[in-house]
């Protein structure tokens, strides 16, 4: 018996529930030297803006217990270069390409979303409303329910491709934010983004991150992420993409049982570039062992 691993976001089918987390897999191609990209459920590329962004001053990363803090500042090559140089190569792979995007303000969000929506070879859009490193009025959209509702509504009504909203953990009630996304027409929510964090050198009394604070990721945040996914999955009917410190199939399965339809591998790509493949194989093996014919039978099946 070969279990069915296929899942869907609206009408978009994924061959398996394992995708990559934005910002941890570059534009996908950086990892094609290790991973057969055709095997992935999807690739979520590095957050893209209309124009290239230089990002934050170094030092940008610091290792912390079971994880790391980063403050990259959304450095990216911009829409035009992505379309010209990266997408034509990505298109050759048989996997879903999801473009994570952001803007400095709502009109920029709308503008890039429109462009991505009309570009062939992009299967879905992931809207970043939750980057902790950005400075703009719309930085608040991930934590302000009114701004979030307005932003999702304005983007949604203009685009036809599946729209995923990537949520911040930096709120009191993340399921409320997810419900707002669902009400305003989002097709899925992904969570969690990194958690704001800090580390200090006691001798110099300076932060070890150039921008003083950054976002914490890796297994250190996994239990926090898992609980958030569980809360959100109970609250909404749209698919939830679970992420936060997944390093193995066992980790990923916890998220699926908590209610995630898809799971994203993020920081683990840095410590083992073939984590995605190991997760896919491990999930399949588990389903066989547990005689579960379809992954959907496991989604959200936490015994309470």
């Amino acid at each position: 018996m070969k279990p069915n691993l296929k899942v869907k976001i609206r009408d978009l089918e994924f061959k398996n529930p394992v995708i990559t987390a934005s910002g941890t897999f570059g534009y996908g191609l950086e990892y094609s030297q290790f991973v057969d990209l055709n095997r992935l459920g999807g690739i979520v590329v590095k957050g893209l803006s209309l124009y290239p962004k230089e990002g934050n001053p170094p030092p940008r990363i610091y290792e912390t217990p079971c994880g790391m803090i980063n403050s990259i500042g959304l450095q990216n090559i911009g829409y035009e270069v992505f379309i010209k140089e990266k997408l034509p190569v990505l298109k050759k792979f048989d996997t879903n390409v999801i473009v994570n995007f952001f803007g400095e303000n709502l009109s920029e969000y709308i503008e890039i979303a429109l462009k991505l929506d009309s570009t062939d070879g992009i299967h879905a859009l992931e809207m970043n409303v939750s980057c902790p490193n950005k400075n703009s009025e719309w930085r608040q959209m991930g934590i302000d329910p009114k701004l979030l509702a307005q932003a999702v509504k304005e983007v949604r009504k203009r685009i036809s491709k599946p729209l995923i909203i990537k949520l911040s953990p930096q709120v009191t009630d993340i399921s409320l934010m997810a419900k707002i996304c669902e009400e305003e027409g989002a097709d899925a929510v992904s969570l969690i983004n990194t958690i704001p964090a800090m580390v200090i050198d006691i001798k110099t009394r300076r932060s070890l991150i150039g921008t003083l604070t950054g976002g914490l990721s890796g297994p250190a945040i996994r239990p926090v992420a898992l609980r958030a996914v569980w809360e959100v999955a109970k609250a909404v009917n749209i698919p939830v993409i679970g992420m936060g410190g997944i390093t193995s199939a066992e980790d990923a399965l916890q998220f699926i049982i908590a209610g995630a339809t898809l799971v994203a591998v993020g920081t683990a790509n840095f410590i083992n570039p073939i984590t995605t493949i190991e997760v896919i194989e491990g999930i399949e093996k588990f389903l066989v062992e547990e005689t579960i014919e379809d992954i959907k039978e496991l989604i959200g099946k936490l015994n309470e």
């Binding site: 990892y31 170094p58 940008r60 610091y62 840095f270």
Partner: peptide, 22 residues
């Protein structure tokens, strides 16, 4: 030398300033 995570150009964590940007 710089602190490094992915090693393959994906995470953009190990950048240094150069006269052509990071």
């Amino acid at each position: 030398e710089e602190r490094m995570a992915c090693g393959v150009g994906a995470c953009l964590g190990c950048v240094i300033p150069t006269n052509q940007g990071f």
